[in-house]
Design a protein around this nucleic acid. Sequence first.
DNA 1: CGCAGTTTTGATTCATCTCAATTTGTGTGG
DNA 2: CCACACAAATTGAGATGAATCAAAACTGCG
Lengths: 246, 246
Amino acid sequence: MTRLSVVPKLDPESMKTACSKCNLRELCLPSGLSGDEIDQLDNLIRVRRIYRKGEHAYHAGDLFDSLFAVRTGFFKSNLLNEDGRDQVTGFHMAGELMGLDGISTDHHTCDAVALEDSELCVIPFARLEELSREAPSLQRHLHKIMSREIVSDQSVMMLLGSMRAEERLAAFLLNLSQRMTARGYSPSEFNLRMTREEIGSYLGLKLETVSRVFSRFQSDELITVQQKHIRIRDIPKLRAIVGQHC
Amino acid sequence: MTRLSVVPKLDPESMKTACSKCNLRELCLPSGLSGDEIDQLDNLIRVRRIYRKGEHAYHAGDLFDSLFAVRTGFFKSNLLNEDGRDQVTGFHMAGELMGLDGISTDHHTCDAVALEDSELCVIPFARLEELSREAPSLQRHLHKIMSREIVSDQSVMMLLGSMRAEERLAAFLLNLSQRMTARGYSPSEFNLRMTREEIGSYLGLKLETVSRVFSRFQSDELITVQQKHIRIRDIPKLRAIVGQHC
DNA sequence: CGCAGTTTTGATTCATCTCAATTTGTGTGG
DNA sequence: CCACACAAATTGAGATGAATCAAAACTGCG
């Protein structure tokens, strides 16, 4: 990435991935913004970074100064308690924002780990705040994104607090399927990027339980599962499993 | 604080509870703001409302246009799923903000119910956004509050995902105790405002389990419990229960 | 004072965890 | 390219913590 002296210019390579050209813009930070506002984001988000599988975008305790948007790949967030307890608190795919938890104390509260080779857009938060003071619709949009995170955390609380193993797995698969659809991928066929243990940690189950429920779903012909490859065969029935309160 | 004619005047009664005079200001929205910025909040937050026990501040689905700050009393948030499943997602005491979930879709996603006679400050959100565009430190503070909510939801996820009943109850009691302390109340003696069922719903347990664990804590001399009255007798041991990973 | 709602406690059942063994898949170096 | 070692996933058997069902005791409100 070469830059000119005063006003830094994006070279053609990075241009391809400027917000304004990004095929994720409808899912990511720019969604719902005017062309003008997206241009300003182009100016703000100038750093992208590649992460190899297993690499951390940040660790719990690190100073917070940027949000991260997933451009390609897949991340998990990991909460590590004082007492060594460790839980996956989220999975993040292309177009999703990570790091909102860090605003609260200026330090990240969880680890973010790449589950495959990935690329992140780095969003300097102080500058995003500046920008959003000037652009009400960007401000509102940032607030919506934070609020959406709160809402989705709360529906995970509901899942963990009141669903049984089968319901949790069904909800998990449907959620993945829906996020794949939003990204233009098949809603019914995809590869899991995380291990059974990570799924279990996220859903409050042991890995053996996750494996068993997958097998049961398979023998009930709801899904086909072969290691990490999942094919969803009966979405309505999965929905019924989540829906049934008992 | 006297104001000139154009600006509506607060009467002496409400004066007593303007943000600038509010004894909760260190806990609530104004915390960390300059005197000048708090004056602007005084101007913004002009409506307070009394709620009787059992009354709703809002229902899931209601149009969102304001945040609510608890001035006195105690609220719960209740998530009601399509399928009739119902879960308490939070308890809110004086100085805490409710309604952040509504920003995401312009509609509240949960019910907020008074668990005792209470008073809320109504904070018109559009005007709060306006104000925070002008006052960077208010903006940053609002972001911190939202982020804090995300962090605390995530630690509930951790609790629900990986703790056993005793650990959950111990964590719950310590959390209440700590919030009481922050408000100048005794950390070790207080009245619960919620039923065993509500505690259970929040913690992903049945009411009988909550009751049993309270009884066990009592016979282990960790607490004294008599219906809603709780006296915490051994905070270090409660901490040890939460801490022990097994 | 009586009644409804809440809480406590007991007996039993059930879902998930734990422990263990086996199979399958993956990455590395000879 | 194959063999080996290691990680991940499956499956089974048995243990266990919490749920469920049930009954009794307590509380507070009208």
